[in-house]
């Protein structure tokens, strides 16, 4: 017997008990209990009569450097990080939205250089524009942005680079982060600032 059938039989017998109580017992409180039993049993039976489907959690994915072959692979991983572990989507949106609490990141990969993006993620207070579209002298403004490379979010350098790759892809830009920049496991990670500057050029400054 499957679990559904077992539960159906339980539901049916609860309804049956309720009916028996209503038929044979006079005490009004017991009758009310019988009535409630019928109602609850019927509810369960109705819920059991639709096709049953449990929702299983998806497999947890890990950043595996061996699977990354092209910048597009990086962007795909970056996409996942952006919407899950990195928690970026808790505030930022891509495209306008009423629920956005922070700047809309649509086209950000075209507007900002990758070095600037890297710095915004790792040192959010360093260089803030009131309006990120603003050009000219930077303005002092306390950002609500957390440090992405520290706890509680704590993305690794590889992960941050992937997110940048994703942002560039979403802006319709050529991805300027290359696979060779990623730290291989075991190797000591390069200093973030230096690594960011030493990246291949082709920094798009569109518009």
């Amino acid at each position: 017997m499957s679990e559904v059938v077992k539960l159906q039989l339980i539901g049916l017998s609860v309804v049956g008990i309720g009916i028996l109580i209503l038929l044979f017992i006079r005490a009004s409180f017991v009758r009310v209990i019988g009535f409630v039993a019928i109602v609850l049993g019927l509810f369960t039976l109705v819920a059991l009569s639709v096709p049953q489907m449990a929702s299983l959690p998806p497999v947890e994915e890990k950043f595996d450097i061996a699977t990354v072959k092209t910048p597009t692979d990086m962007a795909t991983i970056g996409q996942k990080i952006f919407f899950s572990k990195g928690q970026c989507a808790l505030c930022h949106t891509i495209g306008p939205s009423e629920s956005a609490r922070c700047p809309d990141l649509k086209g950000i990969g075209a507007k900002l250089s990758r070095e600037f993006l890297f710095e915004s993620l790792t040192q959010p207070q360093a260089y803030i524009y009131l309006d990120y579209r603003h050009e000219g002298v930077a303005k002092e403004y306390p950002a609500r942005m957390p440090y992405i490379n520290k706890n509680p979010i704590g993305l690794s350098r590889n992960e941050i680079l992937s997110v940048i790759a994703f942002l560039q892809q979403m802006s319709g830009e050529p991805i300027s982060v290359t696979v060779t920049e990623l730290d291989a496991p075991g190797q000591a990670p390069a200093a973030p600032a230096k690594a960011a500057q030493s990246g291949p050029v082709a920094v798009a400054q569109a518009h």
Partner: peptide
């Protein structure tokens, strides 16, 4: 999106099973 449930109970049970528990809870409460 922040703290993942890694326990064996990370799945969401089907509606029928849930309804049985709901009925039980309702009965207890009454």
């Amino acid at each position: 999106g922040v703290v993942r449930d890694t326990s064996p109970y990370a799945f969401s049970p089907a509606l029928g099973y849930a309804a049985a528990l709901m009925s039980l809870n309702t009965f207890f409460f009454c």
